[in-house]
């Protein structure tokens, strides 16, 4: 599904990713862990097409399509979804209007009809329930005045609605208390399917107690330095990142 080879990217003159390889197959959940500043968020942003990064080498393909040839909206229509670490507040932009525009853009690219008002509302209600969200949320401006937990749940709610092929969750656990974390994780788990892959970017093992990954990768200094099963996450939790990062350096 996703094939990343030798990916190099910089911000300004500073190289952040220095040759990253990753293969994700349909239905798999990969966790990317690593210390602060290792390039985890950069990786998520580069894949989704955020400005401010320069890809200086390597490739990333989603179902054979070169992601770097595509605009951010084209990547989204192809089935890529980024759950933001810091969801952006959009004052004055109604959440329902936003969701409808997004869903219709993606449906249209799949050759599907736009949803009528009734079917759209039915779909919204169904998805809101998964995230334990109140439908008053639809009437508010996007993320504006939302609590931290509401913002993160709104991200996963969008993911439920847009049904991506590949979802990248960028530090979705940061700033969540344990109850909110459980709701978000349950939401994510409900969306797992044999066709849908996920990349869970996190600093802590905690999230992985709820979202069990198939593979765990350690990212340090812009490269994946160790890959393993979910037991690798537990080992990292116990020993910290120091041993593995220093081991690599030596």
């Amino acid at each position: 599904m996703l094939s990343v080879k030798g990916l190099k990217a910089s911000v300004g003159d500073e190289p952040i990713l220095k040759g990253l390889d990753l293969e994700v197959k349909p239905g798999e959940v990969h966790a990317i862990m690593g210390p602060n500043g290792s390039g985890k968020s950069t990786f998520a942003h580069v894949l989704s097409g955020r400005e401010g990064y320069e890809v200086t080498g390597g490739s990333a393909e989603l179902d054979g399509e070169d992601l770097f040839e595509l605009e951010p909206e084209e990547r989204a229509r192809l089935g890529l979804f980024l759950a933001f670490q810091y969801p952006v507040e959009l004052p004055g932009v109604n959440n329902m209007y936003f969701l409808k525009a997004a869903l219709n853009a993606i449906r249209k690219s799949r050759g599907e009809e736009e949803l009528d008002a009734v079917s759209f509302m039915r779909l919204m209600k169904e998805k809101l329930k998964i995230l334990h969200l109140d439908d008053s949320l639809l009437k508010r401006p996007v993320n504006f005045g939302f609590s931290g937990g509401e913002k993160k749940r709104n991200e996963i709610f969008q993911m439920a609605l847009l049904e991506p092929k590949l979802a990248i969750l960028d530090e979705t656990d940061s700033g969540l208390d344990i109850d909110a974390l459980r709701i978000v994780a349950d939401g994510v788990n409900a969306l797992r399917s044999p066709e849908r892959s996920m990349i869970v970017v996190t600093h802590y093992q905690r999230l992985l107690d709820y979202i069990q990954p198939d593979h765990v990768h350690v990212l340090a200094k812009g490269r994946i330095i160790r890959s393993g099963g979910k037991e690798l996450a537990l080992e990292l939790e116990e020993k910290g990142y120091g041993w593995i990062v220093e081991g690599e350096a030596a």
Binding site: A76, L82, F84, F98, I106
Partner: peptide, 23 residues
Amino acid sequence: EMLFYLRSRGIAASLARRMLCLG
């Protein structure tokens, strides 16, 4: 940031800008 957020959801840049301006 705002423009990117909308585009990352599949919304074309021109529509995204329209939405933000109307907001």
